[in-house]
Design a protein around this nucleic acid. Structure first.
Lengths: 144, 144
DNA sequence: GGTTGACTTAAAGTATACTTGAAGTTATAT
DNA sequence: ATATAACTTCAAGTATACTTTAAGTCAACC
C-alpha cells in the first residue's frame, strides 16, 4: 500500500519514469522481471525503489543479457543469498561475452571510419590515383 | 567465368571463408547485397574479391546497419560516383548513432562491473554493513 | 453525470534476420 | 555405377522482444 512519504506511480507514470511503455512493463512482468504492487481495484502501482530496479535491469539488458537470462537472474535473486555464486558466475560470463563483442564493434567502427575518410578524400579529390578501399585499408594496416 | 589465377568458391566454400552459412548468403543475395556469378549449370560461384566485399558488409552491419540500410547503400553504390554524397551521409549518420550507442553500452558495462565487484565484496564479507547496491553505486558516484 | 483517458486481461500481430523443409538436380567418391 | 554430399528454388517456420487489438472497467474533469 502506498504511503504519503513514499510516492508511487501508475503504470503510465512509471513507464515515463523509466523510459519504457506500459505494454513493455506488463510484458516484463509476465516474464517475471518486475512485480508491482496492486491497489484494491486491481491496478498496478510502482514505488520509487522499482525505478532503480528497472534501470538496473536495463543496464544488464544493455550489456547483452536476454530477457530469459534476466529472468534466470531474477529467479536466483528471489531465492536469496545462497544463489549469489550462480548470479556472480552469470554476470561474469555476460561480462566476458560483452568484452569480446566490444572489441569486435571497435574494429567495425575503425573500418566504418576508414570508409568515411576514404569517401571524404575521394570527394576532395585527394586520392591521387583512384586507390580502392581495400588498398587504402592495407596502406593503413587496418586488416580485413 | 573462373580463371586459373583467380580461385573461385562454391557457396559452401565461400560461406566458410566469410563465416556465414550458405542459406544466409542466398538470403543476402535476395536482399541485393551480393551478386555472385553463375556457372553454366546454374550454380553460384564467388571470387576472391567477393570475400572483401562481404567482410566489409559485415563490418557495416556490425556498426548497427540493418539489412535494408545495407541494401540502400548497395543500390547507391551500383548507381556510381554520383551517389557518393548520399553514401557518405548515410555512413556518417550510422557513425553518429553508433557513437551514442557506444557511450551507452560503456555505461552499462560500468554498472555490470560495479555489480560484479559488489557481489565479490559481499562474498568476501568485505561489505561491512550490508550496504545495498544502490548505496554502493552512489558511494562510487556511478549514477542511475 | 457524461465524456475522455487510463487502466485491466488475453490473444494475436509485427519486425528483423535469418533458418528449415520440401522436392528436385548435379558432382564427387568408392 | 551408385551412393552421398552439395547444390538449386520457393515457401514456410523460428527466435526475440515487443506491439497492437479487442473488449471491458475505472477514474478524473467540467
Amino acid at each position: 500500500m502506498p504511503t504519503a512519504t513514499e510516492p508511487h506511480y501508475t503504470i503510465g507514470a512509471f513507464a515515463k519514469a523509466v523510459g519504457l511503455t506500459a505494454p513493455t512493463l506488463r510484458y516484463y512482468e509476465t516474464e517475471g522481471l518486475i512485480e508491482p504492487h496492486r491497489l484494491t481495484n486491481g491496478r498496478r502501482y510502482y514505488e520509487e525503489a522499482d525505478i532503480n530496479w528497472v534501470k538496473f535491469l536495463l543496464h544488464l539488458k544493455g550489456t547483452g543479457m536476454s530477457i530469459s537470462e534476466l529472468k534466470q537472474y531474477v529467479q536466483w535473486r528471489a531465492q536469496g543469498d545462497a544463489t549469489i555464486p550462480q548470479r556472480l558466475a552469470l554476470l561474469q560470463q555476460v561480462k566476458a561475452d560483452f568484452l569480446v563483442q566490444f572489441n569486435e564493434v571497435q574494429h567495425h567502427l575503425q573500418i566504418l571510419n576508414d570508409k568515411i575518410n576514404w569517401y571524404e578524400e575521394k570527394e576532395a579529390g585527394l586520392t591521387a590515383d583512384q586507390e580502392n578501399f581495400h588498398a587504402y585499408l592495407q596502406r593503413l594496416e587496418h586488416h580485413e
